[in-house]
């Protein structure tokens, strides 16, 4: 069964904006991202700097490609793989018991330690990217469809930002009530 193009395009738009914002955060503070990457202790020391330099550009390129209809399917699959990779990196460190490292998930104001709930967050993002990778039903799109796509992705992004904020707040709340 093929989904309606509205679902696919809205998902692609949402993932694209999330990747673009992630890329700008990383490009603005390359040193911080490099140290976060190093903290994860997954890469040999020699590879940390080059990977830290290339990753944001990959994110930016994927964000752009998601908006191009011809490249959308491939880009969405690549984005899903990238996000699943991040989840894997978090999972490995959780399994190692290193819960106190900075996730580096959102912007600079939202430093948060890695926790299992972040895996759920990444799973949702991977699911969104997979929806964007589906081949849509071909039908003509009118102005109203365009409006629905933009509105739906805007709501998805706002709720994503709110959920992210709640996740960043929860360790601080626990600290405040003394657990």
């Amino acid at each position: 069964m093929q989904p309606d193009p509205i679902f696919v395009i809205a998902a692609a738009l949402a993932v694209s904006v999330i990747l673009a914002s992630a890329a700008t955060h990383k490009l603005r503070a390359p040193a911080r991202f490099a140290s976060q990457l190093e903290e994860y202790q997954l890469l040999p020391q020699a590879l940390v700097r080059p990977v830290a330099r290339v990753l944001p550009w990959i994110e930016a390129a994927l964000a752009f490609a998601l908006l191009v209809p011809a490249a959308r399917q491939v880009a969405a699959l690549a984005a899903a793989a990238l996000l699943a990779g991040y989840a894997l990196a978090i999972a490995i460190n959780l399994w190692r018991g290193r819960r106190d490292i900075d996730c580096g998930c959102a912007g600079p104001q939202q430093a948060q330690p890695i926790r299992p709930v972040l895996l759920a967050r990444n799973a949702v993002l991977v699911g969104l990217a997979l929806v964007a990778s589906l081949a849509p039903l071909s039908r003509g799109l009118g102005v109203f469809d365009g409006f629905v796509v933009i509105a739906a992705s805007a709501v998805a992004l706002l709720i994503y930002a709110a959920a992210d904020g709640l996740m960043a707040n929860s360790p601080r709340l626990l600290k405040l009530i003394g657990r």
């Binding site: 709501v155 930002a161 904020g165 960043a168 707040n169």
Partner: peptide, 13 residues
């Protein structure tokens, strides 16, 4: 509504 929710979360932060 989504803006309002996000605003609340920020204020809590």
């Amino acid at each position: 509504l989504a803006f309002a929710v996000m605003g609340l979360v920020r204020q809590i932060g």
